[in-house]
């Protein structure tokens, strides 16, 4: 086997929860480290060399400096993996995109706002080419391991695209709608094993919208179940403002 792939891990605007999750692979971490050389990871070490075979990147891009850095990472990485909702679809940070950027800046930094340049929060893919997405808030360990082994084998991982409903039906979960709650599962990408609905919660849409979402039909579902469309749309914006703003225009 050739030299081990060189792996780097970076973070942008986000809570670093996905990275923490990567450190939590107690049972698999040693196996994983056997396959790769981790050359850059601020969360776990602090030395910084040149080029990477795989760059895992967490967080959304929200300042001009982020844009510079991601371009630099892209230039140095053979495979770029967006990890978690912020990196994949903008995530929670992109909620600010629904309001005028100056207004947001002022609200956060007050009179010092000019010291802190800011941009609408962007997914990595709106600035650089992303090769692989690991979705979710936070990303799940199971999925990260699948992507990791695929990349170690040198193959493109398969990204799940069907709705969360599929996984609920496989687990014979009672439908969240039958419990009188709003659930974003019908228009949200699965691959999470329907974690939230399986423990009595509703789907918050953290993995992003399914391809070609039928939002009009989703609205009808809410109306027929006597649930608030406004409330549901607010919740959908929690992780998906960037894409929803795009659909609007």
């Amino acid at each position: 086997m050739a030299a081990k792939p060189r792996v780097a891990i970076f973070d942008f605007t986000g809570c670093e929860g996905c990275e923490l999750n990567q450190l939590n692979f107690e049972n698999q971490l040693l196996d994983m480290l056997g396959h790769v050389d981790i050359v850059e990871w601020r969360e776990a070490m602090d030395d910084r060399p040149g080029e990477y075979d795989i760059a895992f990147v967490e967080g959304s891009l929200s300042t001009p400096d982020c844009i510079k850095r991601i371009n630099e990472i892209r230039r140095r990485a053979k495979v770029l993996v967006a990890v978690g909702a912020c990196a994949v679809q903008g995530g929670i940070n992109s909620m600010k995109n629904t309001r005028p950027i100056e207004e947001v800046r002022e609200e956060v930094y007050g009179k010092d706002k000019y010291l802190f340049p800011t941009l609408p929060a962007l997914p990595l893919s709106s600035v650089v080419k992303v090769d692989v997405n690991v979705r979710g808030c936070p990303m799940t360990q199971i999925e990260f391991l699948k992507v990791f082994t695929a990349l170690v084998m040198g193959k493109q991982p398969v990204e799940p695209t069907s709705a969360v409903c599929v996984e609920c039906k496989l687990k014979e979960n009672e439908c969240v709608y039958e419990r009188g709650m709003i659930c974003l599962g019908p228009v949200t990408r699965g691959g999470c094993d329907a974690q939230c609905p399986s423990v009595g919660q509703y789907c918050t849409g953290c993995r992003g919208l399914v391809p070609e979402p039928n939002l009009k039909a989703m609205e009808d579902i809410l109306v027929t179940h006597g649930l608030s469309v406004n409330e549901a749309w607010k919740r959908l914006h929690l992780y998906n403002s960037h894409e929803l703003e795009g659909l609007k225009s």
Binding site: D31, M32, V158, A163, C165, V166, V187, N214, A217, I221
Partner: peptide, 28 residues
């Protein structure tokens, strides 16, 4: 009216279509 979630297929007792997937252990 359809969101294309596929629930109707997944709960159908006469649907038998399948896909094939490879699972590789972490030791590769």
């Amino acid at each position: 009216k359809c969101v294309g979630c596929g629930s109707c297929n997944i709960v159908c007792p006469t649907c038998y279509c399948f896909n094939v997937e490879e699972n590789v252990d972490i030791k590769v």
